[in-house]
Simulated assay, not measured.
Amino acid sequence: MAYNNVEELPAEITEKLPQHGQQIFLAAFNAAQSDGMSEDAATNVAWNSVSQEYEQGEDGQWHQKPEDPAVHDKSTVSGGN
């Protein structure tokens, strides 16, 4: 069952994820379902997608992961001749 918007997501998702996380879940779930995955498999894909940017805190809520400065401030080193 594809979701048309975040308001249709189950309460256990909307109560734990911030708006952006809900949007990630929705898009990943719908994409997985359109690829022919079962609802359970699509749910797993959606949670895996959410976990790329969010982590669950001790309070049970999902919080955006801190940015890794090493990823954004990499120096480019070329090994040319």
Rank of each mutant, 00 (worst) to 15 (best):
N30S: 07
Q56D: 13
A11C: 10
H63F: 10
Q22T: 03
D59K: 04
Y3E: 03
V50F: 02
T76C: 07
M37R: 11
P18M: 04
A70T: 13
G21R: 03
T76K: 12
A46V: 08
K16P: 01
V6A: 07
G60M: 06
A2W: 02
G57E: 03
E15V: 00
W62Y: 10
E7L: 07
P66E: 05
E58M: 09
D73S: 14
F25S: 02
G57V: 02
A41R: 14
D59E: 08
D59T: 00
A11T: 10
V77R: 11
I24P: 01
A28K: 11
A31R: 15
E39V: 14
G21K: 05
N4V: 10
Q33T: 12
Q23S: 08
E12L: 03
Q52M: 14
E55M: 12
T76F: 12
S78L: 13
V77K: 10
H63Q: 10
F29W: 07
A42I: 00
A70I: 06
E58C: 07
A2Q: 12
A11R: 15
A11D: 15
E15M: 09
S75D: 15
K74E: 13
A46Y: 02
S51T: 08
M1V: 06
A27F: 09
G57D: 05
A11F: 09
D35C: 08
D59S: 10
E53A: 12
S75W: 10
S51M: 11
S51F: 09
L9T: 02
Q56A: 04
Q22K: 11
V45W: 03
T14F: 02
P18Q: 02
Y3C: 00
A46G: 01
G57R: 06
S49W: 09
Q52K: 13
N5C: 08
A31E: 15
K65C: 02
A42T: 04
M1N: 09
M37K: 15
A70K: 15
S38I: 10
